[in-house]
Design a protein around this nucleic acid. Structure first.
Lengths: 170, 170
DNA sequence: ATTTCAGTTCATTTTAAATTGAACTTTTAG
DNA sequence: CTAAAAGTTCAATTTAAAATGAACTGAAAT
C-alpha cells in the first residue's frame, strides 16, 4: 500500500486532502489497536466517501491489491464497521462505512479484546489448581499475585461493557 | 526469544509452570496492546519472581539477548511497570515488577494512547479549516462526519482518565 | 453452455518490527 | 590509573505479519 502521493489524479484540492487525511487518521487508529493499517485505510476511505464504493474503486484509490481489499473488507464487515450491499440486479458489491463508529468500537471490543481476555481468564484459573503443588514458602506470594492478575482480568472484562456504554452515543 | 522449553534446568515443577505461564500470559497481553512480546515476557518473569532479578538472570531465563533485555527493561521502567534498584554498594542493578499493575496500565494509557489521540485531535482540527474550501454540496456531509470523529476522539480522551479511575484499586 | 467479470484463496514476496551481537561507554574495584 | 564487569547503542540480521498476484470459484449475462 501507499499513503497516497500519485501524480495526476490525486491532487491537492480540499476534497482530496480530506480523503487522504481520513485514510491516514484511521490507518493510525487501526495500527494503535494492533490492526493492519490497510484495514484502517479502507475504513477511512469509505468514511470520507459520500457514496458507496466498489471494491475496484477501493483498490484503485488506495493502490492496494485485490487480495488485500477483499480480506480487509471482509474483516471490517464482520467487525460490523462497514456494510456490504448489492444494488438490485447489479453485478458488483458496494460498501459503505457505518459512520456511527459505535459498531466499529463495539465490534473491536467483542471480536478482539473479549476473546483474548477470556482465554487469559481460563489460563489463570488453571494456574490456581497448581498452587498446592508449590513449595510451602512460595505459596502465599504466588497466591497473592495470581489473585492480583485474576482480579485485574475480571475487572477488565466487566469494564468493557461499561466502557461501551460510556463511549456510546453518536 | 523462545517461549521457554529448555532441557535441563527448566522443568515441569509447579514453580516453573507458573513462571512460564506468567511469562506467556503477559507476553500475550503486551501483544494485544501492540507492544513487543519480549517486554511482556520480561514483566511476566519479574512478576512471578519472589526476589529482584538482575539483567543477566533475565537474559538467561528468557534466552534473549542483552540488547533486548536492556531496551525492554528501560521501556518497562519508564512506563512505570517495574523498578530498578541498586543495592547499596552492589555493582549490578536489579529489577522488580510493580505488582500493583496500576502503574503499568496508567503508564500505557499516558505514554502510548494519549499522545496518539492528541495528535489525531490536532489533525482533525486542521481539517476543519478545510471545510469552506469544499464544493458546497459536499460540505454538509463532510462537516457532519468530521464532527463525528472529532466527538469520538474527544470522548476517548476524556474517557481515559475515567477509565483509569474505574480500573483502579489493587 | 460458455464467456466474462466480481470476488476469494492462498503460496510467495515484501515490508516493517523486533532481536541480535559486537563495539562502545560507564561504573567501580583493585 | 587500569582492568574487569555491567549496561547501552545501533547497524545488521532475523522473524513475523501484511500485501501481492496468479490461479481459482461463483455468479450473471449472452
Amino acid at each position: 500500500m501507499r499513503e497516497v502521493t500519485s501524480p495526476g489524479f490525486d491532487s491537492n484540492d480540499a476534497q482530496s486532502v480530506l480523503e487522504r487525511e481520513f485514510v491516514s487518521i484511521f490507518s493510525d487508529l487501526a495500527d494503535l489497536f494492533g490492526n493492519p493499517r490497510s484495514h484502517g485505510a479502507i475504513y477511512g476511505l469509505l468514511f470520507s466517501s459520500e457514496r458507496p464504493l466498489s471494491m475496484e474503486e477501493i483498490v484503485t484509490r488506495l493502490e492496494i491489491s485485490k487480495g488485500s481489499a477483499s480480506q480487509g473488507l471482509r474483516q471490517l464487515e464482520d467487525l460490523g464497521a462497514i456494510l456490504r450491499a448489492r444494488e438490485n440486479g447489479e453485478r458488483i458489491h458496494t460498501y459503505v462505512a457505518r459512520i456511527e463508529l459505535k459498531p466499529l468500537i463495539a465490534g473491536f471490543l467483542h471480536k478482539r479484546l473479549t476473546p483474548r481476555l477470556n482465554s487469559s481468564a481460563a489460563r489463570l484459573k488453571e494456574l490456581e489448581k497448581l498452587l498446592p503443588a508449590l513449595p510451602a514458602d512460595m505459596r502465599p506470594t504466588a497466591r497473592l499475585r495470581l489473585k492480583r492478575v485474576t482480579k485485574w482480568n475480571k475487572r477488565a472484562r466487566t469494564f468493557l461493557p461499561l466502557a461501551q456504554k460510556l463511549l456510546q452515543a453518536d
